[in-house]
Simulated assay, not measured.
Amino acid sequence: MPRSRTEVFDPMMEVERPSRCIRFLRLLWKFSRCVFSHVTLISLVVAYCLIGAYAFESLEANHEKEVKKSIKSIRGNVSEKLWEITKDFDVLIRENWTEQALNELKDFEESLLKKMKEGWDGSEEENNIQWTFAGALFYSIIVITTIGESMSKIDI
């Protein structure tokens, strides 16, 4: 029934309460919105960590193995060069041999330092690598938590 112009809206007038079914549906909607938004967010974080772990492992493990192989060849080259220095002398004079051997060892040391900067951990066993799936998963979790911490410090 339409109101007449003279009728004034009374705030104390009783408002019809929604039925139990409508209240239940509203509650269900709020609950599902909350759960699915959080579940989706958590699922995305977990997926990022797992995909990141796989990516880090596949990218870094092969590089680590290559670095370990190159260390073996560097060590073999130094041994060979020291032997050649020793063979080249007709008469082995300590000062001359020591000077050339120290130069070769200095080059060896620089090569090792370069390999350490590339990620060599001191081990030459190719089966003993740092970038396992568990290590890569840990690294991806550290990355995402560090990004989260950095973002929380930014004032927007």
Rank of each mutant, 00 (worst) to 15 (best):
N62G: 09
N62L: 07
N62I: 09
N62S: 14
H63N: 11
E64I: 06
K68D: 08
K69L: 10
K69I: 03
K72G: 08
K72M: 04
I74W: 08
R75D: 02
R75C: 05
N77Q: 10
S79F: 01
E80Y: 01
E80D: 00
L82K: 11
L82S: 08
W83V: 13
I85V: 11
I85G: 12
T86W: 03
T86E: 12
K87Q: 01
K87S: 13
K87N: 04
D88N: 06
D88K: 13
F89T: 13
F89W: 07
D90G: 12
D90T: 10
D90Q: 06
D90M: 06
I93G: 08
I93A: 12
I93Q: 06
R94W: 09
R94Q: 14
E95I: 02
E95M: 04
W97A: 14
W97M: 11
T98S: 09
T98A: 13
T98K: 15
T98D: 08
T98R: 06
E99D: 14
Q100M: 07
Q100W: 07
A101M: 12
L102Y: 00
N103S: 13
E104G: 12
L105W: 11
D107K: 14
D107I: 00
F108K: 06
F108G: 03
E109T: 02
E110M: 04
L112G: 00
L112E: 06
L113V: 01
L113C: 01
K114E: 03
K114R: 02
K115L: 07
